[in-house]
Design a protein around this nucleic acid. Structure first.
Lengths: 139, 139
DNA sequence: CTGTATCCGAAAAGATACTG
DNA sequence: CAGTATCTTTTCGGATACAG
């Protein structure tokens, strides 16, 4: 990913380096903030991770994400659907069945999201250690 | 990044696919959530983006991140410092000067964070469009 | 089964004033 | 300059009850 990343990296962040304060106006700051507003919450990325390989129905999602409330699952699914990241398909059966699935755009989010998840897993011990050190000195 | 990513991808998310509900226990869910708790807020990733290429002092950061309050900048810088992602260096001068800089670990976050920023910029129009469509139908 | 509606507490974030 | 302290507003998320 290196070459491509570096090139694009320059493209995206260049406005930030020399041009002080223009980040929000040029869009990058706003774009990042928008993304975080969308999937930077407690559950959204987890839901996307769940739908990574297969479509799932409401109850199945709730079962696989321990701790999420019905309300939150509904809200987050609506939000993701609204942003075009997942689809919601209702089957007119009894009992009712609703399947959620990633859209093409939703699937493009898997790679960067996974990269971030990887980073999180890899560096968790180092961060915990840093935290302990900091709190120890601080106290 | 494809081959490496896919392999690691499988490693990281595998517990989620077959094993329902084990995500929190196995750590991946918790790790992702921890990361989001750390840098998933409104400002942290923006700060890291600012420090990507150079160290900056407090006032310079505030100037380059329009809209952030003094209080929030202080809080987020402390949090990032505590996690070992940035360093804070105080120079005993008058007037006082404090420089913030990414640590080695902080710099490793640049790549995945940039990937996410890229995604955000690239898909912003599509998301806005999806949102408008959704709201139009919904209304 | 798949939601919606309502209420409540905790936490995040903004505004403002003040300090070494 | 680089913060801290305090107050207020806003948002997030959980609990519960109810509905198609």
């Amino acid at each position: 990913m290196s070459i491509e990343s570096i090139a694009l990296d320059a493209t995206v962040f260049e406005p930030l380096t020399g041009n002080e304060g223009a980040c929000l106006e040029t869009g990058i700051g706003q774009a990042v903030r928008d993304l975080l507003d969308r999937v930077g919450d407690k559950w959204s990325l987890l839901i996307i991770g769940m739908l990574r390989t297969t479509q799932l129905r409401f109850s199945e999602l709730q079962r696989r994400i321990p701790g999420i409330s019905q309300r939150m699952l509904t809200l987050k699914l609506r939000s993701l659907e609204r942003d075009g990241l997942i689809t919601r398909t209702v089957y007119a059966e009894v009992p009712p069945r609703v399947e959620y699935e990633l859209t093409a755009m939703g699937r493009t989010l898997i790679e960067p999201a996974t990269a971030l998840a990887l980073w999180a897993v890899e560096h968790q011990p180092a961060i915990s250690h840093a935290r302990e050190e900091f709190d120890r000195k601080d106290k």
